[in-house]
Amino acid sequence: MSREPAQLSPVSRTAVGVAGLRALENGRPDRLFEDPYAGAFFHAGRELFENAPRRSLGPVFAHQVAVRTRYYDEFVADAGQVVILAAGLDARAFRLPWAEGVRVFELDLPEVLEFKDRVLAQQGARARCLRTVVPVDLREDWTGPLREAGFDPNRPAAWVVEGLLVYLSHDEAERLLLAVTELSAPGSRISFEHRPDGVNDGLLRQARAIGGEVTELWQGGLGTKAPEWLAAHGWTPETATIADLAVRYGREPEDTGRGGFVAATRVG
């Protein structure tokens, strides 16, 4: 087996663990989504967890990942142009029933996208949309490469910022979102995770009680005032909790506090 996954950065390696959680959900008869490639990603990268501590964060995040995946699947369902920032190992371009002509841009570090494409090729996967990968470091200039790849800032876009901001400092998160705002035509939409209770968020407290490499990487992102920030920068925000979404999807909610997601639409 290739040793390539071991070369992924600590933040990028979390994508392999998340793929494992999506694979578990995909195996349930009452699954909230279908992801036939998640198991292949985890199998290809499982060596990263051979020396992992016995107390895993998997059980803590399994429910959240299942709800989050379904939520973002629905968020992009009607979009004509989609940008997935820190795309990781999710295979939406390959597994969702896209309308004809939809363009999906996946941005992530080069080694993540290379690993992803290698596994997908081994599975014989074929994109169901116009898929374009853009290898970049989102802490550096990424808007130029995105434009050069064919992104049209004059068309509304759906921006997916899944599982990313918590790994960025406040300044890094703000720079990222300001860049998104600059590229967003009226009618564009954005969504990312939002935890109004900050460090007191139930899910984060459970994870920190276990500890490990992942929790040590968290920097907090935009903080607790994301809806207010979006409103001040030309977006109309709405929020949804994981608990409420779980009920909507027919799943028993877990006690994870008020954490969930913010979604916003760019106004003219």
Results as ranks from 00 to 15, higher is better:
Ala23Val: 11
Leu178Arg: 15
Leu217Ile: 06
Arg103Asn: 14
Leu32Asn: 10
Phe151Met: 14
Leu89Asp: 03
Val262Thr: 06
Ala77Gly: 01
Asp152Trp: 15
Asp171Cys: 09
Arg251Phe: 06
Ser9Val: 05
Glu193Val: 11
Pro36Asn: 03
Gly268Leu: 10
Pro97Ala: 11
Gln81Val: 12
Val267Asp: 15
Glu148Met: 09
Val82Gly: 07
Leu183Glu: 03
Tyr37Pro: 07
Tyr71Ile: 00
Gly257Ala: 03
Ser191Glu: 04
Leu48Ile: 03
Pro196Asn: 05
Thr69Gln: 00
Leu176Ser: 00
Ser184Ala: 13
Gln123Arg: 15
Trp159Lys: 01
Trp229Asn: 10
Trp235Asn: 08
Arg103Pro: 05
Pro10Ile: 08
Glu216Pro: 07
Tyr71His: 02
Cys129Val: 08
Ala40His: 07
His194Thr: 06
Pro97Gln: 09
Val83Trp: 12
Arg54Asp: 11
Arg195Glu: 04
Leu85Trp: 04
Gly27Cys: 07
Ile84Trp: 04
Ala23Ser: 13
Glu213Tyr: 04
Ala127Thr: 13
Ala185Gly: 08
Leu24Glu: 15
Gly88Leu: 06
Arg118Ser: 13
Pro237Glu: 07
Leu21Met: 14
Leu177Arg: 10
Pro5Val: 02
Gln122Arg: 15
Glu172His: 05
Leu183His: 01
Glu74Gly: 04
Ala173Cys: 12
Ala264Tyr: 02
Gly150Leu: 10
Arg128Gly: 12
Trp218Ile: 11
